[in-house]
């Protein structure tokens, strides 16, 4: 079972790197969607079905659509020439980072104290609606802010402007 989760994590990293490194923006957006899909499947494996469903439907679906619409409304490359040196330097920095990451994580094992965590009771609905009520109010506020921001950015200008 752990092998499947490690495979999903490796796939997530590979497709995220493809999203960063691919020059074609449309292919990068699709790679990002595949990475979100793998992350959603991983959430289902970790007994987090609600977060998995949100990840797959909203991040892999809605955000990918938004990216594709933006790419369609602009030119794919947008007249941007990326630095070629960055593409060559990246693998070097990535390998160095992986080595440091591995060494630090290996050193931390058994040294970081574990905080006590009482077992949770109830259902996801009870935790979300009763335990995290303030988060929900903030979510409503953020959604309204996003809607008004998009409306303001796409409003038609009057003749005087």
């Amino acid at each position: 079972m752990m092998a499947l989760q490690i495979g999903l994590l490796c796939g997530l990293v590979v497709f995220s790197l493809l999203a960063v490194l691919l020059r074609d923006i449309l292919k990068a957006a699709i790679s990002l969607a595949v990475a979100s899909l793998l992350l959603g499947i991983l959430f289902f494996r970790l007994d987090a079905p609600y977060a998995g469903a949100f990840e797959i439907s909203v991040v892999a679906g809605l955000i990918t659509v938004l990216f594709v619409v933006t790419i369609a409304l602009t030119k794919a490359e947008g007249g941007v020439h990326e630095s070629r040196a960055a593409a060559w330097i990246f693998p070097l920095f990535f390998v160095v980072f992986l080595v440091i990451d591995f060494l630090v994580m290996r050193r931390l094992i058994g040294q970081v104290a574990s905080l006590p965590a009482p077992a949770e009771a109830g259902t996801f609905g009870q935790v979300l609606w009763k335990g995290r009520t303030f988060d929900l109010i903030a979510q409503v506020g953020v959604i309204f802010a996003g809607v008004f921001a998009v409306l303001a950015l796409f409003r038609k200008r009057s003749k005087h402007e």
């Binding site: 987090a48 949770e120 996801f124 935790v127 979300l128 995290r132 988060d135 929900l136």
Partner: peptide
Amino acid sequence: ILTAQALAVT
């Protein structure tokens, strides 16, 4: 995991 899911959804 329940609290974590609520935070992730937010």
